[in-house]
Amino acid sequence: MLKMQNLSKVYRTHMIETQALRGFDIHVREGEFVAVTGPSGSGKTTFLNIAGLLEEFSSGEYLIDGVNVAGLDDNARSRLRNEKIGFIFQGFNLIPDLNLFDNVDVPLRYRGFDSAERRRRIEQSLTQVGLASRQRHYPAELSGGQQQRVAIARALAGSPKLLLADEPTGNLDSNMARGVMELLEEINAAGTTILMVTHDPELAARAQRNVHIIDGQVSDLEHETRRALASLSTTPEAV
């Protein structure tokens, strides 16, 4: 689904050169649920941005669903992003002046679907996240958890093969976070590949695979190690 080889990303200003990713290799298979962890400044967001075609990389190779991304122009990247990738952001990033229906409609309009098809997809995805009855409501009228569900509905509406989630529960309380995580697991179970950046080891432990990024380089962790890390980071009561 997603394959990066020897990828690097360098940010340059006239004074400083920062190597955000270097010799970065990762291969995510179709249907996987991968959690990406790592300390702040390790390169997680840079990786996510490059994976989501929001930024270009400096060197290396990146293939998404078999398409080599290098050399694609801005329009082609936008089209690929729209068709193959769904985004879930930490801050939900819903458009406050649009109701839920119109928020979910945004990527579908860019896809060029006709209005009947868009309506079908919007209703289906809002139903999937349990908010079909509130499609005329505005984001400010919803709780944080509900807003994130709308964001998930928006990401799902275009039937993407890959879902990129950037700290999807970072702004939610534990109950809401659990609900969102369960929803992501359902989506993954239905066949969508998920790449989730998180700081939360407990959430990371629920993913099938955990990728750790340190100093712009990737290290795949074994399942047991992840479990151990998760148990270390939780309180004794929780264990």
Partner: peptide, 16 residues
């Protein structure tokens, strides 16, 4: 600016 970035992330081209 953020909203524009989100629209772009969701597949909006510059021309959109």
């Amino acid at each position: 600016r953020k909203q524009i970035g989100v629209r772009r992330a969701l597949g909006g081209r510059r021309v959109d």
